[in-house]
Amino acid sequence: MANGRTSLRERLTEARDKIWGSQAVDSILRPGSPFKQNYSDSPRNRSYVVMNNVLYHLHPVKVKRHAVKLSYTLCLGGLSFFLFILLTITGIFLMFYYTPSAETAYTDVQALSTNVAFGSLVRNLHRWGAHLMVLSVFLHMSRVFYHGAYKPPREFNWVVGVVLLLLTLLLSFSGYLLPWDQLALWAVTVGTNMASFVPAIGAQVKFGLLAGAEVTASTLLRFYVLHVLFFPFIIVIFMAVHFWRVRKDGGISGPL
């Protein structure tokens, strides 16, 4: 403003305020959003941040102080969910480059690792993320057990949680076959052989999983559909129930 004209900086500030205060931006952000133009830090707004956000309202507005200690929850349940999101995102990326047929599957994975930008990184993220998710779900369950957090009124959420662990294992296992290399083929052969030892229904389970008596090309398609569609669909339903029950029965801050 030295020479009587508005400087570029002032104009930019003015433009930003104008856009940020516009009806369009205002309509996107719910009341109390910390990204709103005139957000002020007040107890009311702190509550609104949680209540008015599609993701954050999984949380209660307030939690007990001891529950916020890292040593208490280790965030394992939340991290399992986060890893699931991460696996979904990287999985969608991988689906662009992968065909579930015995002829092309292996070369697709090979090309993904060498020809596609960040292809190798995304594949690694997907694979290690999956292993980490199995681990974090299991550790989450152990944490819940040691805290006795499955006791009334939260018994049913433990049951849902065990189902989620099984689904996580199935998701990981069904993805194991997809690279269609020696490791995948024989790990799945061993795994499904173990399933066949289950009394009474073992043989049927194995047949259903493999779409035949042993691993064949049609097993690949079956595992692919199970991996990218069926198990995620089921696990999302169970996760929704799981999170809902956490809020209803009392979550990290103990029973309500």
């Binding site: 910390p34 702190r46 939690v63 916020v68 965030c75």
Partner: peptide, 13 residues
């Protein structure tokens, strides 16, 4: 003894 989820819990998460 309770604290606000935002920012205390969310920051940790």
């Amino acid at each position: 003894d309770k604290v606000n989820t935002w920012p205390h819990l969310m920051l940790m998460e």
